Simulated assay, not measured.
Amino acid sequence: MKRLTDFIERQSFGVCEAIGKRVGFSSGSVRLSFVYASFFTFGSPIVLYFALAFWMNARRALRQQRRTVWDL
């Protein structure tokens, strides 16, 4: 079961894991809270999840593209 959740987390942008590391919670509890919040608010946290995933991928792409200001 752990391998399955690790695979899903890697394939789904790693947003819950990043939030969990930053806040100090386990990624499973953050993921579970996203699921519960999605049920109670009729899916609005899904929009937040995709916005965070876009932001994380954009930051990752910018860091890989140019490491310092002086790189050309």
Rank of each mutant, 00 (worst) to 15 (best):
28 G>K: 08
69 V>E: 12
71 D>L: 04
5 T>L: 07
24 G>M: 05
31 R>E: 01
26 S>K: 07
25 F>H: 15
66 R>I: 04
67 R>K: 15
1 M>S: 07
36 Y>P: 01
31 R>S: 10
34 F>W: 06
32 L>C: 11
25 F>L: 14
26 S>W: 05
1 M>A: 07
2 K>W: 01
70 W>D: 13
72 L>W: 13
57 N>E: 12
11 Q>I: 03
52 L>T: 01
42 F>I: 00
60 R>V: 07
12 S>P: 02
28 G>D: 00
51 A>I: 03
68 T>M: 09
16 C>N: 00
19 I>G: 07
51 A>K: 06
11 Q>E: 09
51 A>W: 08
60 R>I: 10
57 N>I: 02
41 T>V: 01
28 G>N: 04
26 S>G: 08
67 R>T: 14
71 D>E: 10
52 L>M: 13
43 G>T: 04
72 L>P: 15
18 A>S: 09
64 Q>I: 11
8 I>Q: 02
47 V>G: 12
71 D>P: 05
45 P>N: 02
40 F>E: 03
56 M>T: 08
4 L>W: 02
68 T>H: 12
55 W>E: 06
35 V>T: 11
2 K>M: 05
4 L>T: 10
44 S>D: 01
68 T>F: 06
63 R>L: 13
3 R>Y: 10
54 F>K: 09
1 M>K: 00
67 R>M: 15
8 I>L: 09
34 F>I: 04
9 E>F: 04
24 G>F: 10
54 F>A: 07
71 D>R: 05
7 F>S: 06
39 F>T: 12
5 T>E: 00
17 E>Y: 09
50 F>I: 02
39 F>S: 11
47 V>I: 12
7 F>A: 07
42 F>H: 01
33 S>H: 03
43 G>R: 02
1 M>G: 08
14 G>Y: 08
66 R>Q: 15
